[in-house]
């Protein structure tokens, strides 16, 4: 026996039905794309939880660093004019 490799890791995203967002379900181990897709189906959709699956090699994921959250997401905090509640509507205005 040459190896006890556990194969490489893939992230699994699932769409529960057409029209919905793809949501992260977890990971599987597989040696290639085809096996990753089949393992994802067997692991995460035994009861019709999904109608479409994406698998992505885990090392292809780029993630933000939670330690940088304050700085990284700061531009969103001081631009309240991006929110509809920022604007003053004349009294009596409807359907807006």
């Amino acid at each position: 026996m040459a190896t006890d490799s556990q194969l490489s890791m893939w992230e699994v995203f699932m769409q529960s039905k057409p029209g919905n967002n793809y949501i992260h379900a977890g990971t599987v181990h597989a040696s290639d794309k085809k096996m990753a897709l089949q393992n994802a189906r067997d692991t995460y959709t035994r009861r019709g939880e999904g109608t479409s699956i994406w698998v992505v090699p885990t090392d292809a994921i780029v993630a933000s660093d939670p330690n940088d959250n304050d700085m990284f997401f700061d531009p969103a905090n001081d631009k309240v004019y991006r929110l509809p509640t920022f604007y003053v509507m004349p009294e009596g205005a409807k359907a807006i």
Binding site: M1, A2, T3, D4, S5, Q6, L7, A30, S31, D32, M35
Partner: peptide, 19 residues
């Protein structure tokens, strides 16, 4: 069972490398 299955994982990896 884990060790007996080792060759399957090895073969799967070898196949993926070959491709």
């Amino acid at each position: 069972v884990h060790h007996e299955g080792g060759w399957v994982r090895a073969a799967a990896e070898a196949y993926s490398k070959k491709k």
